[in-house]
């Protein structure tokens, strides 16, 4: 397995992200992807998730903590970044974190305007436009990690490129599209 050095005095620090939405959106898969990317970079990482019926619908989440040193408490206490793929999830994390935290959400169907510490992207409509509907979550992750780089996005792209099937290729395309969506902001 490749281990890369990272320019990471900043990552010595504990960074927490929350990937929240509805069961079936692939939030656990996203969390595993981020954790795997952290491990490949020689970082310490913990990933936890909703377990049980929540993973089949209703509110669901996956949390990832990344640090340059051993991680004590394995759950998020003060998330640095939140990806909210439903309005319900967005509402639940509206007041979490501190001034530094960023909440990235899908504004395709959102009825409320962008608030303090929030950034909305039209993930669903953009994924449809590009014919990448099934990989909307990957597009969201690409944008989110560009704004909250707890792991190098190149490593995530590398892991996605290893899946040699149609879904893998769609995921990789959607992830790249998400990265450029965020970079345009």
């Amino acid at each position: 397995m490749k281990v890369r050095a990272i320019d990471g005095a900043r990552l010595e620090e504990r960074r927490e992200i929350v990937l929240a939405g509805s069961g079936g959106q692939g939030l656990v898969f996203l969390g595993r992807l981020v954790g795997e990317a952290a491990a490949r970079n020689g970082l310490r990482t913990v990933q936890t998730q909703s377990y049980g019926v929540a993973s089949r619908g209703g509110f669901s989440k996956s949390e990832v903590i990344v640090a340059g040193k051993p991680i004590a408490y394995p759950m998020a206490m003060k998330p640095w970044g939140i990806l909210a793929l439903t309005d319900q999830a967005r509402g639940m994390y509206a007041d979490s974190g501190d001034g530094e935290r960023l909440l990235v959400y899908d504004d395709t169907y959102s009825k409320t305007v962008q608030g303090q510490g929030e950034m909305g992207f039209p993930f669903i409509s953009e994924a449809r436009r590009l014919g990448l509907d099934t990989s909307m979550n990957m597009m969201a992750l690409g944008a989110f990690l560009t704004l909250r780089p707890v792991v190098p996005i190149e490593t995530v792209a590398e892991i996605l490129s290893e899946a040699d099937d149609e879904l893998g290729r769609t995921n990789a395309k959607a992830f790249a599209a998400g990265v450029s969506l965020a970079r345009k902001r």
């Binding site: 595993r32 954790g35 952290a38 491990a39 970082l43 310490r44 990482t45 913990v46 990933q47 936890t48 998730q49 377990y51 991680i71 394995p74």
Partner: peptide, 10 residues
């Protein structure tokens, strides 16, 4: 326990 059993770590 369920926390240690289900969490993923390096």
């Amino acid at each position: 326990d369920a926390i240690v059993g289900h969490m993923r770590e390096d």
